[in-house]
Write a protein that binds this DNA or RNA. Sequence first.
DNA 1: CTACCTACCGTCCGAACGTTCGGTCGTTTA
DNA 2: TAAACGACCGAACGTTCGGACGGTAGGTAG
Lengths: 200, 200
Amino acid sequence: MSVPGATRIAYTPERLLAVAVEVFNLRGYDGTSMEDLARATGITKSSIYHHVRSKEELLRLAVSRALDRIFAVLDQPAARTGRAIDRLEHVVRASARVLVDELPYVTLLLRVRGNTATEQWALERRREFDRVVATLVARAVADGDLDDTVEPRLATRLLFGMLNSAVEWYEPARADATADLGAAVWRLASAGLRRRPAGS
Amino acid sequence: MSVPGATRIAYTPERLLAVAVEVFNLRGYDGTSMEDLARATGITKSSIYHHVRSKEELLRLAVSRALDRIFAVLDQPAARTGRAIDRLEHVVRASARVLVDELPYVTLLLRVRGNTATEQWALERRREFDRVVATLVARAVADGDLDDTVEPRLATRLLFGMLNSAVEWYEPARADATADLGAAVWRLASAGLRRRPAGS
DNA sequence: CTACCTACCGTCCGAACGTTCGGTCGTTTA
DNA sequence: TAAACGACCGAACGTTCGGACGGTAGGTAG
């Protein structure tokens, strides 16, 4: 932690995690060996075990981080008060911001398959998030703001399927038309792609 | 395992593949051992090698099947002639049908990460499909059928992100509101979820 | 100087991995 | 009836896996 100019940069669990998550996303968690991590970090396998207890702990730290940020969205004032449709819009836009800001961690979270206890816990929390959003959609339908032929659970899945697909193609480096992912998703989901016949 | 009265049902590569793909989707390809497959098939590891050359061959057979069906969509007449917007609608609906009909194979295809040569080839073919669809979207914009603020590549990714997310939640057994996945996806993508102010 | 700490390394372990091999057994063919 | 075949098995192969262990270099504190 001391900063004596040009000495070796020591690993913290945080920095180690960042490297590990990149490799996990490249090769898949199961497809990544501790040797792969050693190569990517520049330290040996045994040194990694100085910082973390196990390979699975790295996974747990990563998905916890992603889940914490995502659930924090639901606690924001704009997600808790006001008209359901506006709360929904806020959740979509804020989730998109989390996805972009924490891209590697969210990516890993969305690829979890349920092999270990950690992964099953992650899946359960994701389902919980979906349930909350589906409730929001249902209220927006009841309010008359969403088409009443919309099935809330289906709409939620398509909406977040669209948003979450970004982990497969979003490139933070490129400052292209996808500057605001949340805006693009919300626009498509609420108004559709089709050209409006007349004004507005 | 054999019951005295009944004749033994022998495995074909096809039947073996069906079982293997189910397990791959449950545990992930890298997370599945040949022992896992042996347990799931009821024959031994060595017997599996009587039918297929390697574990990777099972993956190749599976993703080939999915890719063949998906690319067949682009060759259908309705995808090759007519107004771009109608061709696009057909591609979405027909892709949805393929996704549902070949759910396990498409699921596996969409989870491929590029670890082996087989996987990289699968990724490249998927990109090719996306390119064709993006061209279709661009033409529909040029025709004035899609909003001209729509960025073709982004729209394509969101559209198919939405559709492809179905592999994570679609249950063929349940005959619920998602009877026609393609219709639901196309409806959301073209018109959006929002309630229209007045008639139509 | 000594004692101690943190970050790291080299070496090793048992288990599990994908794959191979020699062989068995019931059915089909000649 | 004898030969051939297809489907399968048990045991083992060399390799790689996640992880353990005993060290050591260098900074800091007394």
